[in-house]
Design a protein around this nucleic acid. Sequence first.
DNA 1: GTGAAAGCGCTAACAG
DNA 2: CTGTTAGCGCTTTCAC
Lengths: 339, 339
Amino acid sequence: MKTTTVNPGNKKVQLEDVALALGLSKSTVSRAISGKGRISTETRERVNECIREMNYRPNMIAKSLSESRTYNVGVVIPMDSNDAEAPFFQTCLTGIARECAVRNYDAIIIGTEKDDLSQLKRVVENRKVDGVIITRPLSDNSMETLLCENGMPFVVIGRSMLNGAITVDSNHKDGCRELTSYLLISNQPEKIGLIMGNMDHTVNKSRYEGFESAFATVGAKPAIDMVYTGIESPLQFSKAVSALLKQEPRCIICGDDMICMKLLAELNNLLTAIPEDIRVASFYDSVHLDNYIPSVTSLIFDAGKLGAVSASELIEMLDGNSGKNVMLDFQLLIRKSTM
Amino acid sequence: MKTTTVNPGNKKVQLEDVALALGLSKSTVSRAISGKGRISTETRERVNECIREMNYRPNMIAKSLSESRTYNVGVVIPMDSNDAEAPFFQTCLTGIARECAVRNYDAIIIGTEKDDLSQLKRVVENRKVDGVIITRPLSDNSMETLLCENGMPFVVIGRSMLNGAITVDSNHKDGCRELTSYLLISNQPEKIGLIMGNMDHTVNKSRYEGFESAFATVGAKPAIDMVYTGIESPLQFSKAVSALLKQEPRCIICGDDMICMKLLAELNNLLTAIPEDIRVASFYDSVHLDNYIPSVTSLIFDAGKLGAVSASELIEMLDGNSGKNVMLDFQLLIRKSTM
DNA sequence: GTGAAAGCGCTAACAG
DNA sequence: CTGTTAGCGCTTTCAC
């Protein structure tokens, strides 16, 4: 016993129900919906109207099985304690989710820590996604390799060491060069310090290149005891800061917002006035640096847009179009901390 | 032409392949894997071994279709600019992802902003998930209602206004009472200020109750011009702070970490010494408060565990077991900012 | 204890 | 332009 007009039982109405209600076949209705194949304008409209009335919703799982597509994309985000609270990934993720939603896709979380790729492996082997977005590429490109081996399309947010990978990146190099150059106007090269995180993260490589390149244009080189890279643990951090302060820097650049927050706390504690005693700038902004007083000069990269564009590119690829590399612009925001 | 031993074409090996290789039927192999139905120990072992050798991976989509289960849970997270960078949700999310992975589930992101439930609606109507976790319940319980109407199981992280909902919460009320009581030992009730966010968030209601209750036990009531709730925009914030400072508070409690960060910046700017001039505490911790100098007294709730437990409870429910309400403990960390 | 066969709800040839 | 039919890969009655 089927009811065609209303839906008193709470059974989900399915393709067959609307076909029956219209005296059509399932395939015709299917075509009307997808727009594929030949179909008369009239029937398409009839079908669409009926679908609305009956409140028909296709069963995505059945669709998935027959199309061999999940309409899901995986998003790899770091779960290491170091990055677990970094705002970048969260903002990036919401950008991805938003774009996916528009295209009727969904985003599945894939956590990775250190070199543990088990979650990625599981998701890929279970075929839970049609493609993957890597939000923090590492220089060993282990994730890219795994994905290639499994024939899984992917896009990388940032720079990939793997040749031919589709990447969506912010222009870190130019941005960091510009910020550094700006600082070089009123600070002597040998008085500018740098504190930066894990150099296995390709983003830090890009940033360092920009930093170095700005020095090169004024015919200088970063001094070895002014530059501290690979700083991750609190211990490494405090060692780096005290070593750096001994050199009496006039200006300190932080590799990212998390490092900058820590530096600000430290300088505040030492009663160092910003910018009077030491100027501070950051290669990556976040709400905390903006709210800080004095507000902190930094580069602004739009994490949400980065996410949205990468999702968009990936889905284009899944639809058979070729993905393209995208480089997003940056904005340099001079704020009080360097004035 | 099928190859049973190796897999030179990169076609995925499927149930039928291992059945053929063993001279069994698909159903037997299926039973061996699931453990359901009667099956001899011997064949089960033969099957398991063969599966390992052939590297068989079940197609989760096909499994989904026949079981009418997706093995996905949806996670609702806020995308409002106000909360988009709050570390809580990110940490919570990774806790969920980790627990899901263990149980062979995956987590799908559902973004919500303001009262826009369209993403939630889409995911639910598309049946992309078996259940949903709400990470920030609102007092209008619109999300819970939507889920109920669609017969979708869910668990709420925090307190739900909907009767009968399964909740996993931190003990905010007791925690905030304890922190407030501690502060009441060395500060006069009328000298303690409070700045708190949106009171539509049930978590803020719980926290306020604890705050009020501590006052009650010393026979006092929070003074109206010492308490500022519903603070969200930067403008509201600065108004609240200046109004509060006029009352010359000895101690200020912040409703959460984001508010506390802003307050610290403001006080730092005003050259207010912490804790000498004003003591500061927060109802929620985050890495920034820990790194701040002086470190900030605050309550510690384990966001990762909250996520993991809620995922665990939800999946239990999906497996037909009854979910239970869980209340997680807190930790009060007295740090330098109130000494 | 095991096998055969009928679904799960949709898409995509292939006919007409 | 539309209908018929055969899958997609797994689970699950129902026989044996």
